[in-house]
Amino acid sequence: MFVADLKEKLTLHEDVSEDFLTSSVFSTFDFLPNIWLKKFLQTSINLNNNRLDFPLVENKFLFWKQFSLPSDFGRGVEPDLIIFAGNTAFIIEAKFYSGKSGIGFIEEKVPPDQLKSQLIDQLAREYFLGRYILLDNEICVEEKLFNISNFFLILITKDSSIPTNEIQESIDSIGKIEATGIEMATNKIYWTNWQKIIPVLEEIIEKSSEESFERKISQQLFDFLDKRDLIPFTGFDFLNSCSLELTTTTNEPIFYHTQKRTYWSEELFKEPLHFKDPNIFYMSTIKQYWKDIAKLKCPENSSKIFYQIIGR
């Protein structure tokens, strides 16, 4: 399901699209046993540093559903996803490169010539969706009824740590409408990041058999996230073992050629490789050079490195 993306068939817009990211990640979780979604969502924390905990139950996903809100709580709202699980609704707001849509309030003209403060803070509106539309209501998703008695709002970003200011702004906005709501909002709004999916996928891959569906789809999602640099820090051990085995005389890892200061220059491809035109791998600003590079049987994406290097 990710092949077109992994093979670079999509546009740049799709590459950085948070909707595409959201649907890819959660569609995958929808296919996998519940335990893996639970493991990921349980990485969420709130501003009190409490970790999200909930029972493991069958769930249904509702993507990009629009809701109207009572007029005091701003205009309508369209969370990226709501996961209904037992008696709990998880409202998911996913971000990639952009921040939340709307902060605080705006003043709007209402007839006759009056100004009304309108809530635009996205997380605050989604909190009120949980508080006044979902909570204590019966919700039907794909012919299954959920009696919602609890809800959580989860912000997913690529930040390395909880975006305290962003969440606090939303809680403050909630407090301006409902002073008593601050404590509840603090306990309902959670955050996690995309990077925390990687350890979950690694566990699936490790525990599943090679040909299993779980392993294949998890590996594809892993590659999908890796392509977007949504991976946690795992150290530089790999540099100790990598070597291109370029020539018969040296076996040095490519970065470490401290004396010659050559990364991608002629040393890399001189010997023992024999090309029809030995110059084609040299650093060059000649257009033909790049055309020749493009003809090589490189695995996809690989020739990109040269386009970057020429900028040095």
């Binding site: 890399l268 090309f275 090589l296 049987k297 490189c298």
Partner: peptide, 17 residues
Amino acid sequence: GKIMDQAGKNIDQAYKI
């Protein structure tokens, strides 16, 4: 073609690193 395949492997490895 065979030589190019080896070159491609090298490039791919370098790219990944």
